[in-house]
Design a protein around this nucleic acid. Sequence first.
DNA 1: CATAACCACTTGTGCGGACGAGTTGGCGGA
DNA 2: TCCGCCAACTCGTCCGCACAAGTGGTTATG
Lengths: 238, 238
Amino acid sequence: MSMDFAPPKYAQVMRAIQERIESGEYAPGDMLPSETQLVRELGVGRTTVVRALQTLAMQGWIEREHGRGSFVKGRPESGADRVRPSLSTAEQGENADSLVEVTRVPAPRHVSRLLGVAERTPVIVRKRVARQSGVPSAVETVWIPLEIAVGTDLDKPEPLRNGIRRHLQAVKHLRFDHITERVSARRPTKEEAELLGSSNPVLGVLATVHDPAGAVLLAMSLALPGSLHELEDVFKVS
Amino acid sequence: MSMDFAPPKYAQVMRAIQERIESGEYAPGDMLPSETQLVRELGVGRTTVVRALQTLAMQGWIEREHGRGSFVKGRPESGADRVRPSLSTAEQGENADSLVEVTRVPAPRHVSRLLGVAERTPVIVRKRVARQSGVPSAVETVWIPLEIAVGTDLDKPEPLRNGIRRHLQAVKHLRFDHITERVSARRPTKEEAELLGSSNPVLGVLATVHDPAGAVLLAMSLALPGSLHELEDVFKVS
DNA sequence: CATAACCACTTGTGCGGACGAGTTGGCGGA
DNA sequence: TCCGCCAACTCGTCCGCACAAGTGGTTATG
């Protein structure tokens, strides 16, 4: 009668141990019960316990030392995902305020390079201003090839409430697979300076969005005022 | 007689399959031999084959589909490690040309924050200029607490041939565990502008280096001219 | 002809047992 | 006292077997 969908036992063992770590019952540095003890306590085979422990070790929850035991390390840090400005730009919903203009122009040289099309091929440009509590905090310029934009609302001057990624996903089933992003420092262009209300240095982000096959779906150029944005990153040495 | 150090069998199975993928014998999309076939071919138990295949799947070499088979995906991409300017600064060897000055000064406010010491605590400052084919490409200012610098050559105005990390490792057995890095855009300071020969916008990098316990070993502030540096990053969506 | 049952294949999970090897502490002999 | 050996513990690997469950093609049935 019951749905009776049981996760595999080794996963249950993992969960049990993770919960004890998170609750503090097993503190960092503590030795875990030995495999044999866990077998008795949990009523499963050693194969199962070992599989659970080895997976936890791979994920960084515990450390295993041959001949000594298994030791708690703590909840693994997720690698502290960096903030990805281009990803926010792809996700962010638009409103009448943020959308500056939508035009169709021949692709300038640097954009045609990013999109992999011939120079001066017509492309759609969506220009937007992101604001934080009213203050302009970024100018986002998105370049979309016509083949991609056709049949969507990307070339229409109305705000996309759900953002670019969700719109393309819903209307044309296009999947954003990965993004390459290049960050530098530069002066804002004249237009960016006007929209931002300042010509102080900006972080210039150039990004291309790719589908699973690696083809470029669209490109974007962001101007983030240096006084408002810091991109933080934590990483292990060697 | 022989050293006769044999890696575990499951690792040998993994290697065998990886090699066949890299050689092209198994092309992306191909179905791998079934577990039973591998058992017969390689003369090991199914447990061993399964462990190898499941590990390969976790690492992204292959995909496994219940009831259908295992399929080649290809060599997993390493996540395309981003360039870490602060890491280069820690590793880079110095020479008479690059070292600008080594002084002892009271920590200014923002540095004392980074180092977690009281304002105006004396600290060592090493200032260097990185060059690429003669052109100044970065100004690197490193701030080191006295406790760390004592007993090392960090407070001496001679170039450290092997770089800061290796020097601290060799002399005081201090291990660099992780680094947090914050990137922004700003104008260079007057001194940076002089050393760089330009006052165009720079990427400003503030970084702190931590030991395994999380304690701050040193801090650094880098000025990378925007016209010379792009930080590239590739990442998966969602 | 459409459908259902069946079969041969695949991977997923689980058990018990076995042996190897590293670690630790205690016990006895020198 | 000091040192070496050994037993008892730990994890690492491997095996054979078993059964569940998903997939795809063939065959029997209505």
